[in-house]
Simulated assay, not measured.
Amino acid sequence: MISNEPIEKLSEFTEFVESLPNEFMLSRGQAGEYDLLPSSLRLDKSNIRKYSRMASQYFLNEFKINSHNYMRFPTDINSEYEWMVYAQHYGIPTRLLDFTFSHVVSLMFAVENAFEDEENKDAEVWFLNPIQLNNKFAHRSEILNIANGESLNLENYEGPIAIKSRKLNERINAQNGLFVYFQDVINPVESPLNKIVDENILKRLVIKGEYKKDILSSLYSMGIGFTTLYPELQSVSKDIIMKLNIQEYLRAGDE
């Protein structure tokens, strides 16, 4: 794992990405410096799981029972893992952590709330080599495909692993997304992906907090906005507001 000097410009991000080995094909952007843990394994201030194993399974089971009337093809979900993918999209805590093949999408995730962040917190983008990750924990030299008919028990592996599935909703498709699956450990204190101290698997880039607005403005000038991440009507409204925020911010900078 490598911690680099914080970046201040989109061009510096591009330069870093161009210097990455091709194997670092996945990334994840975060608005703050957080552990790389999925929602169902995250910890409270006392380092205790917010959700027990029983609660996490309850959430998923209840989603299965209550979602059918709202799904076009509910019988098309083929496995427990695909149910996790689908349920996470609608806010159910799962053991899946989102990543993307698009590094610019990750950067947008890192800075998307720049105008709401009053503290100017540093953001970060993590870059992952999924092949090395899966070699380490699953002894497989590939991203595991949970939709190809292979009988997989992801609990049999020794640590978090990169998986891909069918693109079951518009967001996964728009974000070119896939996941890292975490085993259901009792105490996940040592489970965050960022605890892996191996520069052949994981690299980190910090975005300096006071420059997030500049980077967001640059992304917007390249046609990247909320509708890029979330292809839905609400994002149109968010892009309109972001456009005005950027215009006023740039105008203030010229004065």
Rank of each mutant, 00 (worst) to 15 (best):
S102F: 09
E18R: 15
N129M: 01
E82Q: 11
A162P: 06
Y90R: 10
G91N: 08
L60R: 06
I224E: 08
E112A: 15
R28V: 00
S235K: 11
Q247L: 13
P130D: 01
K208D: 13
I172N: 00
E8S: 14
P231A: 09
Y51G: 03
Y181E: 03
K213Y: 02
K243S: 15
S106V: 02
S191E: 15
I224P: 09
S52Q: 14
H68F: 12
G253F: 03
L144K: 04
R28D: 02
K121C: 13
I224L: 15
E33C: 01
E62Q: 13
V85T: 02
Q132H: 04
Q183L: 12
L202D: 03
D98C: 06
Y81I: 11
E82D: 08
V125D: 11
E112F: 13
R171K: 07
N129A: 02
K45H: 10
N22C: 10
R95C: 05
I7R: 13
L152C: 08
L133H: 04
E190N: 15
L107S: 07
Y181G: 00
N169A: 03
K45N: 14
L250P: 00
E150L: 11
K212G: 13
L128I: 12
L219V: 14
N173V: 01
D44T: 03
I92M: 08
K164R: 10
K195P: 02
D239H: 09
N47R: 09
K45A: 08
M25T: 13
F137I: 03
V17N: 05
A110E: 05
H103R: 07
D239V: 05
Y157Q: 08
I246R: 05
P38W: 01
E116D: 14
K208M: 13
L229Q: 05
E142P: 00
V180C: 07
I143K: 03
W126I: 08
G29K: 09
S106K: 07
